[in-house]
Nucleic acid binder design. Structure first.
Length: 271
DNA sequence: ATCCGAACCTGACGGC
DNA sequence: TGCCGTCAGGTTCGGA
């Protein structure tokens, strides 16, 4: 489900409701997500006030005085704000309870994570992450310098969170299409100019997707339970076999790359 | 250091 | 209807 725009949409939906609020309790119905939810997390969060909420890559970080609650939505996770009486459905694994509402984590595939750290700046899953794609330090020059001597396909490269965070399968395909770059080109073979174009495309795609509230394919919902509308703007993802919206004649082609479906235009994105 | 595939899990869908 | 294989928005980890 969620790439950076969906996580950002969720975060921005939650912030106005949760900052400064006190957590009155936490109910864990299913501890086994990607990793086990730590057994002491209910104690750590009980009666804690939410000081700050932010995002690092696709990780949602919720700061309280004694540390940080870390939430990752995996492939199928979502967070919604509900009334206390809202009926439970099958994969509602965790509730965080506030005075007037419940924050509910739902995740059918359980690839997501709910973790705790006393010190987010020294947490293994966070400290080796690459840079944020929407920050100014993510430049064509940065990307070009990192591609040197790297032989992986450029699509895998921009999806590598040690290089740049937040770019998943949908937006990687869309950004490469927008930049006119074939997904299979080895990273080291990109010219500096192509790196500039790719970075520009990534920023543009992500910003536009955030503006539309993310991409809803089957079931993505923001924290108010509303879908995102960026799926209507997708130019290659999910369109294999259809004609290219840019050149109008080539048929979009699908290949498997690093176990992920990858769609591109063989005419607009030359190898 | 780099790269690749396996692993985690459920549900939806198409074919027989 | 039911069973089987395939696929799905992520990413860490282990081994080559």
């Amino acid at each position: 489900m969620p790439e950076l725009p969906e996580v950002e949409t969720t975060l921005q939906g939650l912030i106005p409701h949760l900052i400064g609020k006190r957590i009155d309790g936490m109910i864990v119905r299913q501890r086994q997500l990607r990793w086990l939810i730590p057994y002491d997390i209910e104690n750590k969060l009980n009666q804690a006030y939410i000081l700050k909420m932010h995002r690092r890559g696709k990780y949602l970080l919720i700061d309280v005085e004694s540390g940080t609650l870390i939430i990752h939505l995996g492939m199928s996770g979502s967070l919604r704000l509900l009334s206390h009486s809202s009926p439970l459905t099958k994969h509602d694994h965790v509730d965080i309870i506030f005075a007037t509402m419940t924050l509910r984590y739902t995740d059918p595939r359980r690839f997501g994570a709910i973790l705790w750290t006393d010190d987010a700046s020294d947490y293994s899953l966070l400290k080796n992450l690459g840079i944020e794609p929407l920050e100014n330090i993510f430049t064509g020059h940065y990307l070009f310098s990192r591609t040197q001597h790297r032989h992986v396909p450029i699509k895998s490269f921009i999806m590598d969170s040690k290089i740049v965070v937040g770019i998943g399968n949908i937006y990687a395909a869309e950004a490469l299409f927008l930049a006119g770059i074939h997904p299979l080109i080895p990273a080291s073979r990109l010219t500096e100019d192509q790196c500039y174009r790719l970075v520009k495309a990534i920023k543009q795609i992500l910003r536009r997707a955030i503006k539309k509230g993310g991409t809803t394919l089957k079931d993505f919902m923001n924290s108010d339970g509303k879908p995102g509308y960026f799926s209507q703007q997708l130019k290659v993802y999910g369109r294999a076999g259809l004609s290219c919206v840019q050149c109008g004649f080539a048929v979009l082609q699908a290949i498997k790359l690093a176990q992920r479906n990858t769609v591109f235009c063989p005419a607009c994105q030359l190898l």
